[in-house]
Design a protein around this nucleic acid. Sequence first.
DNA 1: ATGCCCCCGTCCCGGGGA
Length: 262
Amino acid sequence: MRIASWNVNSAKARIDHIRDWFAAGGADVLLLQEIKSQNESFPFDVFAEMGWHVAVHGQKSYNGVAIVSRYPIENVMCGLPGDPSDEQARYIEATIKNTRVVSIYLPNGNPAPGPKFDYKLAWMKRLYLRSQALLADEIPVVLGGDFNVIPQDIDCYDPPGWVGDALTRSESRSAFFKICYGGYTDALRALNPSGVYYTYWDYQAGAWQRDNGIRIDHLLLSPEAGDKLVAVGVDRGPRGLEKPSDHTPIWCELAVRRSRAN
DNA sequence: ATGCCCCCGTCCCGGGGA
């Protein structure tokens, strides 16, 4: 089963890209972020016409996450536990074929320091707690999304230029690696320890043409999911289309094992 | 040094993005 994550920067503006990429076999399960749409105005009809399943946690104008799947979606949970006053739509969980998948749109946190950075760190603490709770079921778990964290300098085209930014600050990186050290594997780094991969290029200053990118979209795998990891990649294709999102999809392939005797 | 670009709303600017 192929699982992908893609910050599409508006579901409505990108609906053709989403449909075409998914129809072409880009993934079996697609975790979307920044759909920038409330549930009432989400383009459900497009997915229904294609026979795909979809779960949406929307919000007006900003944020918003969703899950698109070729297989039935069960036990949907909207919102990251731990703060009932948090009304931003940045988290959705569901079970698909005995795998728990999560679409995450982690707060940016700039300017840092400041209240937005505090919100980011508090959100990451809640995410760590939830990630630990998810391990208890001992089924494959995939935490996918726009984490708004550049884990290492290798993941940035210009590390000196990003010093002090909320995406590279030590507090952000520590919170990211705390989730990893807690039992989750960065799928891309598991198979490519030292390669340069970017998932985001700014719209401005010719960043795409100059390959001035950063790696902030990640797929984190529980031990049960990591055991099944057979391939991972970043598909740069959609970033080169007309009117693209500023992010491009990252995907991983998890092997299907029917029994212990395989 | 600053801003470039893009999306949303009920809108012709401002907020937010990263």
